[in-house]
Amino acid sequence: MSLRCALLGAGRIGRIHGTNVARAVEGATLVAIADVDAAAAGELATRLHVPVVTTDYRDLLARDDVDAVVVCTPTATHHDVLMAAIAAGKAIFTEKPIDLDLRRIEAINAAVAAAGVPMMVGFQRRYDPDFARVREQVAAGVVGEIHVVRITSRDAVPPPRSFIATSGGIFLDMTVHDLDMVRFLTGREITGVYARASVLVDRMFAEEGDWDTAVLTLSLEGGLLATIDNSRRAVYGQDQRVEVFGSAGVVAAVNHTVDRVVSADASGGRSARLMAFFPERYVDAYRLEMQAFVDAVRGGRPMPVTGEDGRRATAVALAATQSARENRYIAVT
């Protein structure tokens, strides 16, 4: 039987997930959409031929013909939305971060465990084929003992001011993906962070109490080290690279370009531009992530990315925020 899904939130990320559930994921059907913006919900429902539209997500949680919810509402709403979905007994896919407060995340995770409902957290980069292949090679021993992980993550387009104000800041919104990737690639926990951050792209970030550029140094179990550099604007396109270096070698994933064609003449060589932004760069990852969620729910298997994964990445992101503010190393427990 197809997993009947309701989309909660029809913004940018909601449109990505909703389109995948409706058109690209096997074993799932998009049966309803909720968004406080009736026009946004209606436009997406029309485009995807979804029969039920509402401005109140609770209407969908009460329906017997909804098996699962895909939560793409603003992070500040997650606690109430997730608690209501848990109480309704729905399977849950939720975008990251689960919440901006560790105590609320722990309460949500405890409620999930008590109710016995499945909940998966959306860290789509785990499903990027290149990054997944890096992890496979690291796990197979290609690099030997891991020494250093390096991640570059630079967005092509800065977020709007309205988003920054409720996002929790660069570390909780953007870097949290990279922190999860460090855990994913190494299989080790992060034990501490030293972060420095600046406003170099747009004064708007400072006005909202945030930064747009950051560099982190991480310590991990076993003495491993990792570095992450972030920017909210890379004028040349979406810059997403990872490298794992160890005693026996190195494995790396390079940037994606709009095509793989290169040319050269007497003036030099040329290659295609990088992907325009994250939706294009991670188109496969978003689809594969949602397929993994649907397959796990239908098969009664454990969620591949758990609430605890979400909690751990958020804990380091909060520590990085503290480190940047206080200019000191912060241990993570």
Rank of each mutant, 00 (worst) to 15 (best):
H49T: 14
P118N: 07
G9S: 09
V215L: 11
V121F: 05
D128N: 14
H49Y: 07
Y57F: 15
K90A: 00
I108G: 02
G222K: 01
G122L: 07
I330Q: 03
Q291R: 11
G9P: 10
A24G: 01
I98P: 08
G169K: 05
T227W: 04
V215C: 09
S153K: 14
R298G: 01
M181W: 00
V36T: 15
A276F: 14
L44H: 00
I170S: 08
A28L: 01
S247A: 12
Y286P: 03
A28R: 03
A34G: 10
R12T: 11
D229F: 10
F293I: 10
V261E: 12
I13T: 12
A276M: 12
R47C: 02
A226T: 03
F123T: 06
D35W: 01
A324G: 11
D130L: 13
R15L: 03
I164K: 05
F131I: 15
A195F: 02
P158N: 09
E207Y: 07
A292Y: 03
A76P: 06
M303H: 05
Q238N: 12
V31H: 08
R196T: 14
H49P: 04
G222T: 05
G169N: 08
G122Y: 09
M174R: 12
A266G: 14
H78K: 05
G187T: 03
R281Q: 13
V258Y: 09
F123H: 10
R133E: 15
F277G: 15
I228E: 06
R298A: 12
R260W: 10
E326P: 05
R150M: 10
A132P: 10
